[in-house]
Simulated scan of single mutants.
Amino acid sequence: MAHIGHRVEGPPPGLAWVPPDSGGFDHPSIASIVMTVIERDFGKKKRDTVRRFRELLSLDALHEHNIQANPLPYLERASERIFQLERALFEAAQVFTGPVEETPSGETIRIDKLEYERLLRCREIVEQALTEYKNDEEL
């Protein structure tokens, strides 16, 4: 390491001196060292994507390599799962909005107010999801 008052012969290994802006002054200073940071993720983003996809499919970590090597069966599995969820959404929406096929029996059923509010909230969630699905289909 150089001491104050000693002349530095060259930059440390891996660094380069940049001439200072003061013109004619050729003594290197800390401010004149230029370092470039090269970002390397070594495939981290791709591994994170595969890991998230695996977690969405509820698979264990052993499947990550297979997903990366041959994603088609896993994409088909995801597509089937999406189809099943869409079907369940449409069936739930039909229950809430569909025509009443039977005439009311006249029976009175008593439920707790909290349970009724939960049912109404479920209905809102299904209607909102169906609306979002229709909006996505239009795009």
Rank of each mutant, 00 (worst) to 15 (best):
21 D>R: 06
5 G>T: 06
19 P>R: 13
1 M>I: 13
52 R>Y: 00
92 A>Y: 00
32 S>H: 03
133 Y>I: 03
31 A>F: 10
63 H>L: 00
85 L>W: 01
37 V>D: 02
11 P>W: 08
54 R>L: 05
113 K>V: 09
101 E>C: 07
46 K>C: 14
2 A>E: 14
119 L>G: 13
51 R>I: 01
77 R>P: 11
61 A>M: 09
61 A>E: 14
76 E>G: 02
47 R>C: 07
67 I>P: 03
10 G>Q: 10
49 T>H: 06
5 G>R: 02
98 G>K: 05
43 G>M: 01
103 T>I: 12
38 I>T: 15
93 A>R: 14
63 H>D: 04
22 S>G: 06
84 Q>R: 13
89 L>T: 05
52 R>I: 01
110 R>D: 03
78 A>K: 07
52 R>Q: 10
88 A>D: 15
9 E>G: 14
45 K>F: 14
123 R>G: 06
123 R>I: 05
95 V>G: 02
24 G>C: 00
105 S>A: 04
30 I>K: 07
23 G>F: 03
22 S>K: 04
39 E>Y: 12
67 I>A: 01
69 A>E: 08
78 A>L: 09
94 Q>F: 11
32 S>V: 04
116 Y>V: 02
130 L>A: 06
74 Y>A: 07
36 T>K: 13
115 E>D: 08
77 R>N: 08
121 R>N: 08
83 F>N: 06
29 S>M: 10
29 S>G: 13
41 D>M: 02
36 T>C: 07
13 P>D: 15
135 N>K: 12
45 K>P: 12
71 P>V: 01
19 P>G: 11
100 V>H: 06
67 I>C: 04
131 T>H: 13
6 H>E: 15
94 Q>I: 10
32 S>I: 02
11 P>G: 15
82 I>V: 14
31 A>D: 14
16 A>V: 15
52 R>H: 05
113 K>A: 11
35 M>Y: 10
127 E>D: 06
9 E>V: 07
137 E>G: 01
42 F>R: 11
134 K>P: 01
122 C>A: 12
83 F>P: 06
120 L>H: 03
138 E>A: 09
47 R>F: 11
93 A>T: 03
121 R>P: 00
26 D>P: 04
48 D>M: 02
47 R>K: 08
39 E>G: 09
70 N>F: 03
29 S>L: 05
86 E>N: 15
1 M>T: 14
9 E>D: 14
11 P>D: 07
11 P>I: 10
82 I>A: 12
28 P>F: 04
18 V>I: 07
62 L>V: 14
6 H>G: 13
62 L>I: 04
91 E>H: 13
71 P>E: 02
135 N>V: 13
126 V>T: 05
68 Q>D: 08
70 N>G: 01
27 H>Q: 11
135 N>R: 12
128 Q>P: 04
31 A>N: 10
29 S>N: 04
14 G>F: 02
102 E>H: 11
19 P>W: 03
110 R>E: 03
108 T>G: 07
31 A>M: 07
59 L>I: 03
8 V>W: 05
38 I>H: 13
16 A>H: 09
118 R>L: 03
120 L>K: 11
2 A>L: 10
2 A>Q: 14
76 E>R: 11
68 Q>F: 08
7 R>L: 11
28 P>Y: 00
80 E>R: 13
23 G>I: 01
84 Q>I: 03
37 V>Y: 12
117 E>W: 09
7 R>Q: 15
93 A>D: 09
66 N>L: 05
114 L>C: 00
